[in-house]
């Protein structure tokens, strides 16, 4: 029963974060909330008895993917500001 409540809470958070990632205006907010989706997914994997996958998802989905997106954003931003001034 407690597990079901936890699953419902996790699902709700990840769905809200996913919708927010789509509708928000700022790209950086979208990147962070897609990281939140991955983090919730990794807890979900732990609940469905897949600890290997949970470890990988926690390291990659919320760690490295976010950093890769941020680096890409830095490229784009840096170029634009250097062109403007």
């Amino acid at each position: 029963m407690a597990e079901n409540i936890l699953i419902i809470v996790l699902s709700t958070i990840s769905l809200i974060a996913a919708v927010f990632a789509v509708v928000t205006k700022k790209t950086i907010n979208a990147i962070i909330s897609s990281g939140v989706v991955s983090l919730m997914a990794s807890i979900t994997f732990l609940l469905v008895a897949a600890p290997d996958v949970a470890m990988t998802e926690a390291a990659i989905g919320s760690g490295l993917t976010t950093v890769v997106f941020l680096y890409a954003l830095k490229h784009v931003r840096g170029q634009r500001s250097s062109r403007d001034d």
């Binding site: 600890p51 290997d52 470890m55 990988t56 390291a59 990659i60 760690g63 490295l64 950093v67």
Partner: peptide
């Protein structure tokens, strides 16, 4: 540790390699 103990505990080459990459990050 994660990738050498991949056959005993959860983990293995893929998570271990990524954890190493995060140290370099």
């Amino acid at each position: 540790y994660i990738f050498t103990h991949g056959h005993l505990t959860p983990g293995g080459g893929f998570p271990g390699g990524v954890v190493m990459a995060s140290a370099f990050l």
